[in-house]
Design a protein around this nucleic acid. Structure first.
Lengths: 124, 124
DNA sequence: CGGCATCCCCTAAGATACTG
DNA sequence: CAGTATCTTAGGGGATGCCG
């Protein structure tokens, strides 16, 4: 019952708290970008793959499955040939994206500071 | 020069844009927790290790080095025996933490929704 | 106390090929 | 088009031992 207690308290600093896995789902390398892209609107698989430049088929597939499992992404498939699958955000996913987008903007904006910090660190 | 151009434009969706590495530094598994912990105030190495429950020496060390390299964390060492090393946030690190903390709070708060989504996903 | 060095395991991730 | 399946490799991550 201690584990349940930890889950109720929801302290991310606690080793076994589930909130850590929630955080890991949405902050993994490709999840951040997928959520941010889908915040622009629904995407089909390959369109999303082009939007999230550099992601492999496999990783995008895995990422979307994890996001679907966690209730962030809705997957709608038409069983035609060729198939047509559309991905969109759920309400929960939209909330997640709204947490992530300021983070992305910040990272883009602070790129110069980080780069010069890296250069200074090199020359020590 | 195209690479420089991409860096100036700072588009995280672009494969080679440096902003992605900035994002990866601060959203890696232990960086999020280290930044959030240090936002509470400075910590010595082992105190931080206890605060960030579950992190190994090696990973905390690596994480702090990456954060120091990127100008997020300041490392102050007294060369005594035993040594005393204090870690604290820079202004840049404080900003990063301020982006992350709402994300953490959101993850903690939405834990129940995610858990029930996972259960529903299991039983399909 | 605050590490680094070393060894080792495992999975995250990329590349390639194939299919309904 | 939207994926799976398979193979391989880089690196995340833990355990242990040592040192100033």
């Amino acid at each position: 019952m201690e584990e349940d207690f930890e889950n109720l308290v929801a302290d991310v600093f606690s080793r076994r708290c589930t909130s850590r896995t929630v955080l890991e789902t949405i902050t993994s390398r490709w999840s951040i970008l997928a959520l941010a892209a889908l915040y622009e609107g629904p995407y089909r698989f390959n369109a999303l793959r082009r939007r999230v430049d550099g992601v492999s088929e496999k990783m995008l597939s895995q990422t979307l499955q994890a996001l679907e499992r966690d209730g962030m992404v809705l997957r709608e498939a038409e069983h035609t040939i060729p198939p047509r699958v559309e991905y969109s955000l759920t309400a929960l996913g939209r909330e997640a994206a709204e947490q992530l987008i300021p983070l992305i903007s910040w990272a883009e904006g602070r790129m110069p500071e980080v780069m010069s910090a890296r250069e200074a660190y090199q020359g020590r």
